[in-house]
């Protein structure tokens, strides 16, 4: 590899990833780094290649070995965008957590569900869960593997507005506690901008990257998302800073 020796905290890096599907270029020279204890959010319009990039990073899509670097023995927890479970599949929350290679004790499973706030659903069938409960269950399963890093694709999709805030807060709290690196995809700019350390704006190529405030002022970002959205973000940020200045009693969003 031609890359400099990665720093100690680096967990995962993409180096100029190109990816084609059916002759169409989905990813164009995409580079990205995720370090321990940081939340990196991937934003971009529909069809920008966000999910494709995640799949390349997770090894679901194969890319040249030189273009994706992972810390040796990196444990990844994956929370996919959508897990449609047919009602003909009988499955309880606790059984869902044990899917795959995890062979965990009841206590470990309960603990994990406790951390995501859905321990009371231990024995519930998965089909009756709300969007938020379902996401928390999937998150609890991802945590069972004691990951170094979490990858979440649209973690708040199908969750109501107040649930969205809570879910992002939960991810933030757990990150603080376990020191995960977190890579998440979102197109909900308002919430993301407050709850993330670094934003990467993707539209087949990386348009811009940096702190949320920096990215939202970037011309290419403005062009992608349109002025009304950007203006509303600016308003939001203004509000956010205002809260902080007033003693920070406004909840971090």
């Amino acid at each position: 590899m031609t890359v400099a020796i990665p720093s100690e905290s680096l967990l995962l890096a993409a180096r100029k990833v190109d990816f084609h599907i059916g002759g169409r270029k989905i990813l164009d020279q995409v580079s990205l780094e995720v370090h321990a204890k940081e939340i990196v959010t991937l934003v971009g319009p529909n069809g920008a290649g966000k999910t494709t990039l995640l799949k390349v990073l997770l090894g679901i899509h194969s890319a040249p070995a030189t273009s994706v670097w992972r810390k040796p023995r990196l444990r990844l927890g994956y929370v996919p965008q959508n897990i449609p479970i047919d009602s003909i599949m009988p499955l309880t929350v606790s059984r869902f957590l044990q899917l795959g290679m995890h062979r965990e004790s009841v206590t470990t499973i309960k603990d994990s569900l406790e951390l995501t706030g859905v321990a009371h659903l231990f024995d519930a069938p998965v089909h009756g869960l709300s969007g938020g409960e379902f996401k928390r269950m999937v998150l609890a399963r991802a945590m069972l593997g004691k990951p170094d890093m979490l990858v979440l694709d649209e973690p708040v999709q199908g969750v109501d507005y107040s649930g969205e805030l809570e879910l992002y807060q939960l991810i933030g709290t757990l990150r603080d506690r376990f020191g995960w690196g977190v890579l998440l995809v979102s197109h909900d700019l308002h919430i993301v901008m407050g709850a993330t350390d670094r934003v990467v704006c993707l539209n087949h190529h990386v348009c811009c990257t940096g702190k949320p405030g920096h990215v939202s002022n970037h011309p290419e970002f403005r062009e992608l998302f349109g002025d009304p959205v950007v203006r509303s973000l600016a308003l939001y940020h203004h509000h956010h800073h205002g809260c902080d200045a007033n003693g920070g009693h406004g909840t971090q969003t």
């Binding site: 997770l58 679901i60 996919p80 899917l99 795959g100």
Partner: peptide, 8 residues
């Protein structure tokens, strides 16, 4: 239940 999850 989820093919990509199994792949990942």
């Amino acid at each position: 239940i989820h093919e990509d999850l199994a792949r990942a």
